[in-house]
Design a protein around this nucleic acid. Sequence first.
DNA 1: GCAGTTATCCAAAGCGCTTTGGTAGAGGAG
DNA 2: CTCCTCTACCAAAGCGCTTTGGATAACTGC
Lengths: 346, 346
Amino acid sequence: MNLKELSRILGLSQTTVSRALNGYPEVNEATREKVLAAAAKHHYSPNTRAKGLATGRANAIGHVIPTANRHEMVNPIFGDFIAGAGEVYSQQDFEMVLSIVEDSKEEQVYQNYKTRGTVDGVVLHGPKMNDTRIAMLQDIGLPFVVHGRASGITADYSWLDVNNTSAFHRATEFLTDLGHRRIGLINGLETMDFAHRRRRGYEAGLAAIGIPIDPSLMRQDEMTESFGYTSAGDMLDMANPPTAFLVSSIISALGVRRALQDRGLQMGRDVSIVTHDDTLSYLANGADVPIFTATRSSVRDAGLIVSQMLIAQINGDTTGHQHKLLEAELMVGRSTGPAPASAKMA
Amino acid sequence: MNLKELSRILGLSQTTVSRALNGYPEVNEATREKVLAAAAKHHYSPNTRAKGLATGRANAIGHVIPTANRHEMVNPIFGDFIAGAGEVYSQQDFEMVLSIVEDSKEEQVYQNYKTRGTVDGVVLHGPKMNDTRIAMLQDIGLPFVVHGRASGITADYSWLDVNNTSAFHRATEFLTDLGHRRIGLINGLETMDFAHRRRRGYEAGLAAIGIPIDPSLMRQDEMTESFGYTSAGDMLDMANPPTAFLVSSIISALGVRRALQDRGLQMGRDVSIVTHDDTLSYLANGADVPIFTATRSSVRDAGLIVSQMLIAQINGDTTGHQHKLLEAELMVGRSTGPAPASAKMA
DNA sequence: GCAGTTATCCAAAGCGCTTTGGTAGAGGAG
DNA sequence: CTCCTCTACCAAAGCGCTTTGGATAACTGC
């Protein structure tokens, strides 16, 4: 069933039928109803490609997921992000197109998006420091919103970010208030902007009470469970081990917990853990009382908001660039407690 | 830059340029090279929608992700699945379109895919027993491949599945060989086909050595960490607790481990755990020696194969339906050991 | 009763591509 | 030299939609 057939059945021109379906005023209400009824009856829905060709719009939004080049990993927060975005898209009748692509080919994908008209805009994921993709997208002329920010980029652009610096500053402060003086940082790759900011927050928190920064207490890598396990293990086996860990992902925090367990250490008593919690649906941080003390921010909500920002931009409902900074909540759970006396004396 | 401009620049007709680019034989090799060079130089890439309109193909494949109606969860295995599929798509120049949608609207999405011509085919995720979507897709006439199978459906269709029954049968046998007699099953929702099959495997394993089935040792739900935690905890607090658990997901297994830890029980000594491991990239089951003894099967590989099957089907490279059954490997890790003597006597 | 609105509708062009149905010219066969 | 066959190209139709630029008829006010 296409427009032609439908209009023949109705005995109307394609023009009128098209206008009736798209809510234009120059069509009689009675005929509009007839048209809508017929469309529903025959399961008519306009061909996306033809509509796109005629209007010059794709009604689609692209997400380019760079596979971490070393291993083919898809960031687990991504699932929840697109769950949020997907809800908005289905309401607004946008399609979500996903390109999983190795870093080196990312530019090509954006270029193709533009010249082939595949999408009307893109969400930029995982911004790095001085991220070159931002200038590239501006160059190409493809509307975009960044999930995160890119330190070092002076140009203005739309973004939504969590206040990572203040969150980790606050978390560090929380631990030092409990008497912890040696705090391990288990961070994401610090080429990633969010990880860089978290480290700055951590360092600022230490500096605030005059604790020198000890590079041997800082690790960064892809935030897997096993990264949390091995890096926490390494630090715990040092001569002067940390009494607390600040972890960038609940997944790595699970690994840290395992490292404690292996050594017969009790979480929250012998060693404290504070983690960032993206509120992943399958890894809820406990029910009422959080398992981990955490800086919490919903990545699902981020997906929701980012997609709305982007659609507004595409529709021209907005002027200039939009910025949104979300604050992470500090949730006190059962993974933190006062620094052990033995450690304090040391 | 479009075909018209490009052909004007080259002083050729659109026909010839189009043919040159698409590798048709009726064009001189010398001119073909000129065309290719010019296309590269001007970053020409054909408009997807126009091409689609002309050819009647979308060069796109749809993935409908039903959000578990109760909570807005996106199955965490999904990320790795699409990582595999995405690799194939980018090689074959297909687009991946994703629709996140609540169960009740799923039919509408497929119908729209068809009438709007959004995609050439779909991957069906998370098949349930007697899944009605299969008949629906056949009805609509949209090519599809199922990731999993649907018990109770007699019609033939293409699928790729893991041999869940034999995997869990084997895992159960492994535990009974170790002397375990009370084995808790922490399963996914048994409306899901895979969970149903796993239970059958578990039951067959018990039946094989004459152990009666005890419904109080079986739980099913969305496979979150906290589900593993609470259901394992419940069973451990019973008068006659299990000495081993068979778990359907490594995420829930993490919860089970936490439940053991809370009770001062040591995994692999006091209580054994066998889990299914989808080899999620961010939750690797240990490095060399697996943390959990597991039935292992890569969901990333599944994504790779399913997408290839579907593309072959769309391209007409295949006749009839394709089926592929993968066997899960049993990896022995550190989470299993002989049933404790005390339990044996009980 | 007549020019000027207004409310409804329509024919046809155009979006950028592929493909059908050609044509012109070079080369080969007789 | 003529006829035929290829080779290499092209003009134009068509994919299914939106939108421009009317057209027609009913209605208005004087």
